[in-house]
């Protein structure tokens, strides 16, 4: 039965998708808010004379990791959190030394959770503590499907650790109140933005600074204000080659060249123009006017590294589940 089925479907597959030819295209599976960024990066990459077609797929970073594990044939992943690439390492799709394959731990740009409020900031939101106040509605994406949502959790927790001097009961109380203020957890960062802007839900959107600044620019500075909190959480956006896919397709060179481009001054320039903070200090300095000062804590400082975060916070029944009553 299986064999018959396999033969039948193989006929269809071979008839409809080009699997043997030398690949001239690669697929980039990416996070939700990076649609415009990678459209611009791809155009800039093509301008350097590269002939490869880079296809894009966007959704919540973890939802994308799931899709790759399910067989989405992405040659490269450009995620927003290390934990999502680690899922692919566990699944045998990405080699475990991926971070050393590219400069800066394979993170070409970074951002951090910031706030977008309605014009004039009617609820007076200036820092993380205000998000847990009574009568404030907060929008951010589902931490189970979106790296963006998990960064929000980590940033809020990092702020609370300082604020409550590590008193776990108080930290949990704050986070529980914060999560209770969220009327809807969309599965991706862009869907959360749409909920805030199109559906007019909530008083404050928590999303990457990249999204906050780009929405403000796109939809009008007269409608929204960007608010930078006192402290936030460094969100480096890692990239990796999906070994299992490129080896099967013979597209490793194309994939590598494309990701390397993101670290070049041209690639970095495009990132900065799309409000992603570039890892290249010279490019960042040139765009200093666009990016306000902010104190960022790192995963190592606040939580002792990604492995610890994954085990203590994000595992089933972990600290995140305690405050995110997603039943």
């Amino acid at each position: 039965m299986n064999k018959l089925l396999a033969t039948a479907v193989a006929a269809v597959v071979l008839g409809t998708s080009p699997v043997f030819a030398q690949p001239t295209d690669i697929l980039n599976a990416s996070y939700d808010i990076a649609r415009e960024l990678f459209e611009a990066e791809n155009a800039a990459y093509a301008a350097t004379g590269a002939t490869v077609t880079v296809n894009q797929s966007h959704a919540g970073s973890s939802a994308q990791a799931r899709a790759v594990l399910e067989g989405l044939a992405a040659d490269v992943v450009t995620f927003n959190q290390v934990t999502d690439i680690d899922k692919l390492v566990d699944g045998g799709f990405v080699s475990d030394d991926w971070a050393s394959e590219f400069p800066n731990n394979a993170a070409p740009f970074y951002s951090f959770p910031a706030f977008l409020v309605r014009a004039g900031n009617p609820k007076g939101i200036s820092d993380w503590g205000d998000l847990a106040a009574d009568g404030v509605q907060v929008i951010f994406p589902n931490p189970k499907t979106s790296g963006n949502g998990r960064y929000t959790y980590l940033a809020a927790r990092a702020w609370a650790i300082e604020e409550y001097a590590g008193d776990e009961a108080k930290i949990e109380e704050f986070l529980t109140k914060l999560f209770a203020n969220v009327p809807v957890f969309e599965t991706g960062g862009r869907a959360a933005t749409t909920a805030f802007t199109e559906r007019q839900l909530g008083d404050v959107l928590v999303s990457f600074e990249a999204e906050v600044l780009s929405v403000k620019k796109q939809l009008g500075a007269d409608k929204y204000d960007a608010v930078t909190p006192s402290v936030s959480f460094l969100s480096e956006f890692p990239v990796a080659i999906v070994d299992k896919v490129v080896d099967a397709r013979g597209s490793r060179d194309l994939a590598k060249a494309y990701l390397e481009f993101l670290f070049t001054p041209e690639g970095q320039e495009v990132a900065a123009a799309n409000f992603h903070r570039p890892s290249d200090d010279a490019v960042l300095a040139a765009h200093a006017a666009d990016f306000p000062e902010i104190r960022l804590v790192t995963v190592d400082e606040a939580f002792g590294g990604w492995d610890k975060v994954a085990a203590e916070h994000f595992a089933d029944g972990g600290l995140l589940d305690k405050v995110f009553l997603n039943q």
Partner: peptide, 18 residues
């Protein structure tokens, strides 16, 4: 149910036109 068997045979169905 069949995904792993098919993947073993190099056939990917999910997320394709098929």
């Amino acid at each position: 149910l069949l995904g792993p068997v098919l993947q073993g045979a190099g056939i990917q169905l999910m997320f394709t036109v098929t």
